[in-house]
Design a protein around this nucleic acid. Sequence first.
DNA 1: AGTTGTGTTGAAGA
DNA 2: ATCTTCAACACAAC
Length: 290
Amino acid sequence: MPELPEVETTVNQLKKKVLGRTFIDVWTDFPKTIKKPKTFEQFKKEIKGEKIQKLWRRGKNIIFDLSEQKVLLIHQKLTGHLLIGNWKLEIGNWKPLKTGPLQEKINTYIHLMFWLSGNLMLALSDLRKFAKVELWTKEGFKNLKGFKNLGPEPLTKDFTFGKFRGILKNKKGKIKQVLMNQEVIAGIGNIYSDEILWEAKVHPFKDVSKLKEDNLKKIYQALRKILKKAVKLGGESISDYRDIEGKKGGFDILRKVYRRRGEKCSRCGTIIKRIKLAGRSAHYCPRCQK
DNA sequence: AGTTGTGTTGAAGA
DNA sequence: ATCTTCAACACAAC
């Protein structure tokens, strides 16, 4: 599912395709994806004619800065991903015109389609229909709760070890949960929190207040290393994420613990375990991670 | 064939 | 305030 590296990949690729283009029209068979404005008809009316001036990522959010002081926000949630291509509508289903990755099943759950100037189509494929799309005015967007409260971006230069340590200093709770909290650090989800903690040799249930300086340093280093590497490789595609051409990301070969329950730890050979943590699963090596 | 696991976010409940 | 639980939804695997 799309976390920071996957969203970053999508945004980087999308920039090359859509900057400067104008929204011509939009289609949906699931209007609930559009959370703002209230009706799809209104959304359609407002987005038509809007030009894409800037495209950027914040946490797991994709943000389109548009003309006329408007902002389009897309959160892909669990199974959403954006695709560029050409399709035709056949009995309610969008069929890709060319053979290739867009024909893969996971890329065919298209519930939202944009037409852009220059004969370009932008689709949102979303198996479980959790993705959200919102059209805001710049003013409204600025005050968005849950966006304003996002923690710092972990890959920027100023996200130093000192800053990281400072952020975790007065936090309580289990380290995995804290890493996934978007208000603490933006962009880390279930997959990368598992991978980071394996790399750092820290148990996912370890209480943040009990972490020693050395543990913190290792977590910080692992976090930077793994996220950067994942961006470079175009994200992970163990299940549903695909890039804008419908292709898989290359991080899977480096995946050490996530969804590897029952397999041997690549570092020590111990069987990888999975435990429940606040309704989600944590994967870890019971020998390496203390 | 019915049940469970899948994970993000926000809302509801405690 | 702060915590946990659950709902949104579809499908694969058991």
